[in-house]
Nucleic acid binder design. Structure first.
Lengths: 245, 245
DNA sequence: ATAAACTATTACCTAAGGTGAGTGTCAAGG
DNA sequence: CCTTGACACTCACCTTAGGTAATAGTTTAT
């Protein structure tokens, strides 16, 4: 069920250009990019796109959307609830504007500007964002990551992806060894460097935190275990030993 | 009841920069601009601003808003009715999005993109615009005017205003003469040239149409008669004689 | 084999203001 | 009369979320 850009565009109503843009911005990365740079999208991509459209509807900027969706503790249902609330606020605002218009249709000379006000909505948007940022725990890391990833091109993303996958592969290839084995410990260092290089300064403390998340956060765990069952636990253990020193 | 930019900004929630911008774009011209370029707004300006905010809410561009508000046959009540309809469409759309979100909250895996669709709303916006453009009668003139006035700066507007007022004053000064008097007829020519120079190619046919509007369209009539009671009729008659030749 | 219909990248363009620098103006209090 | 803080002005550059070519490679169907 791979879909081309055009097919996605037709199905969803977003333009091809927008898909290109979302790719470059790193908020919707096609499941497959062939050698000749053709983009192909799958069902997961479509779901992500739907999420993006919801957030866009709520007037979040693309950068903000990136932050929300990249949140390691992102809770879809919780997010939907907040989105619902924001949509309701917007509807209330429209209701007030319609009411004001009705007054004017009655011939009332009303000089009212409150219905145009966006303060309440903006306040809730900020609240939403603040919560996700707090969940990132380390705001410094979050901001660094935001800054760094801002300018990444699709080529950059592809390179990062390859590099990351290579380290994953090495981990898988050494899963029979002890987690304290120097080879495995070196992979942990590579992993840490990879994060620092591409996202944010990954200190030992943060690395320790990540190690714990890899087993306790299902989103992370599932992702990692796709490379090999048990990999998440293995990496987490290896990181634990490394950071304990 | 003159208000400064800041006061208007505080009252309406619109930024000072936006007021500057609306001035330069010619969609909200302060009732008074002092020698040192300070802007002062009155109640009429506020009403106009409210209209602008309504139209902005409906996603009309500033240029489109200019076209709508400059429509010589602009009917406020009719406009409100259409605005109401558009706002309702927007609300319906929000309702659908909320419903979709509710489905997702129920855990349904729905891959629906229709609620994001803007086609219906855009279609109605086009309909709205088309109607006002048609009322301009001469679409060529409308477009010329749109193009020309696009680049006008506040200084341009002030100059045009002065020039126009000067002709009005001359008309007033000669209201005791016959409308066929060469002096009056020359003012008609100046009037025609003024329009051609600043707005669009004002042919004799169009001028004749304007002459009729000056007495039949209350918006025009009131505006003109502010300079002197009976001026609208006087100008209309003079134009009638000129274009009859 | 060729045309139609895709795909890609690059690069420039837009709307509706935001932001900041530098400067002029006004009202109030000392 | 002077100063000071709040306000006013313009100028000029910046931003977002893509739109719109132009140019060129690819796929697919005939």
């Amino acid at each position: 069920m791979k879909m081309t850009v055009k097919e996605v565009a037709n199905l969803t109503g977003v333009s091809v250009r927008t898909l290109h843009y979302y790719h470059r911005e790193g908020i919707l990365i096609p499941c497959e990019v062939t050698e000749n740079k053709y983009r192909y999208y799958d069902a997961t991509n479509l779901e992500q796109l739907q999420n993006i459209l919801f957030l866009r509807e709520l007037d979040f900027s693309i950068q903000e959307i990136k932050g929300i969706l990249a949140d390691p503790n992102y809770d879809e249902m919780d997010s939907f609830k907040k989105q619902r609330h924001l949509l309701q606020l917007k509807r209330n605002r429209l209701d007030k504007l319609i009411a004001l218009l009705d007054q004017k249709l009655q011939g009332e000379e009303t000089m009212n500007f409150k219905p145009f006000d966006m303060k309440e909505i903006e306040e809730n948007q900020r609240k939403y964002q603040k919560e996700t940022q707090e969940r990132w725990g380390n705001t410094d890391a979050y901001h660094q990551s935001e800054q760094k990833t801002k300018g990444y091109t699709p080529e950059n993303w592809a390179a990062i992806h390859n590099e990351t996958e290579a380290i994953y592969a090495s981990f898988v290839a050494n899963m029979d060894k002890d987690t304290a084995d120097p080879i495995v410990q070196d992979l942990v260092v590579q992993w840490q460097n990879n994060i620092t290089k591409h996202y944010y300064n990954c200190t030992n403390e943060i690395l320790a935190g990540l190690g714990l998340m890899y087993v306790h956060d299902d989103r992370f765990k599932e992702n990692i275990d796709e490379h090999a069952t048990g990999l998440a636990q293995f990496m987490s253990d290896a990181i634990g030993i490394y950071t304990a020193k």
